[in-house]
Design a binder for these strands. Structure first.
Length: 263
DNA sequence: ATGGCATCTAACAGATGA
């Protein structure tokens, strides 16, 4: 079974890339972030024509997540509130969380807030959001021994995940508080950054800034991840970053990351 | 120090992203 995560930076602008990529890479499940569209306007038909089921949690202009699956998912859970209840509804105004169950596998698809600037209101929101993510995953884990948590985390965990870590303490996505929050909310629960089980090299990135020709210089960041529960990690066969679509005409600034499970 | 670029809404510029 193959599962991919991809921040597409607008599902409507990227529809042809998504279809082209899925035809070449018929993964079992594709997790999308930054769909940037309300649910009635999601380009559902083009995806369904490729024999994928479409599950969406969208909003106008910003954010938005989706699950595209070859097999039906049941149940599908929208937002933090589906697990945490009423007190989490405020954080669900921004559509950043969708989860689904595929057999005995539970997949959580996340779009972690960007944070804008260190110390800003958005930065504090990002840290609060990650604290709530801990509660969410902690509640899911006992019921879901085969848990996969993937998406755009907007945090580079280590210096080898950044093309140039100089000054990283003052940079969004690599400040100590962001790294500590991701560590506390995900890794400390026992979830494993599975890419690093297969590849320990620096220079392995999933996002390159549109500006300054970052992709051609490989000036990127590894901020799109797959985290696996311990039991599930035993089934992992590979985890690769597919840079191919980042080189296409008018690409997303992110590229897909695919994990293969022996399930 | 700033802006590089791309996407959204829809104001032909401003907000947001990372």
């Amino acid at each position: 079974m193959k599962i991919a995560t991809w921040n597409v930076n607008s599902v409507r602008s990227r529809l042809s890339h998504i279809c082209q990529w899925l035809e070449a890479n018929p993964v079992d499940l594709l997790c999308l972030q930054e769909t940037k569209v309300i649910d009635p306007d999601f380009p559902r038909a083009a995806i369904e024509a490729l024999n994928y089921q479409v599950y969406i949690f969208g909003q106008k202009s910003y954010n938005g997540v989706a699950l595209l699956s070859r097999s039906p998912l049941d149940p599908v859970m929208l937002g933090f509130a589906a697990v945490l209840g009423e007190e989490a509804t405020a954080l669900d105004e921004q559509k950043r969380v969708i989860s689904g169950r595929l057999g005995d596998l539970c997949v959580v698809n996340l779009y972690v807030p960007n944070g804008s600037e260190i110390g800003s209101e958005k930065y504090l929101y990002k840290l609060r959001w990650l604290a709530t993510l801990r509660d969410y995953l902690k509640a899911l884990l006992p019921q879901q021994p085969h848990l996969l948590v993937c998406g755009d985390f907007n945090v580079a965990l280590e210096d080898r995940d950044i093309h140039n870590p100089k000054g990283r303490e003052k940079h969004i996505m690599s400040s100590d508080a962001e790294r500590e929050a991701l560590q506390h909310s995900v890794l400390d629960l026992g979830l494993i950054d599975i890419f690093r089980q297969f590849n320990s090299e620096p220079g392995q990135f999933s996002w390159w800034d549109y500006r300054t020709a970052a992709f051609s210089r490989n000036s990127g960041w590894r901020i799109d991840h797959h985290y696996l529960s311990p039991a599930l990690s035993q089934t992992a066969q590979s985890c690769i970053i597919d840079k191919t679509p980042r080189a296409w005409e008018k690409p997303s600034d992110h590229t897909p990351v695919i994990v293969e499970l022996d399930l």
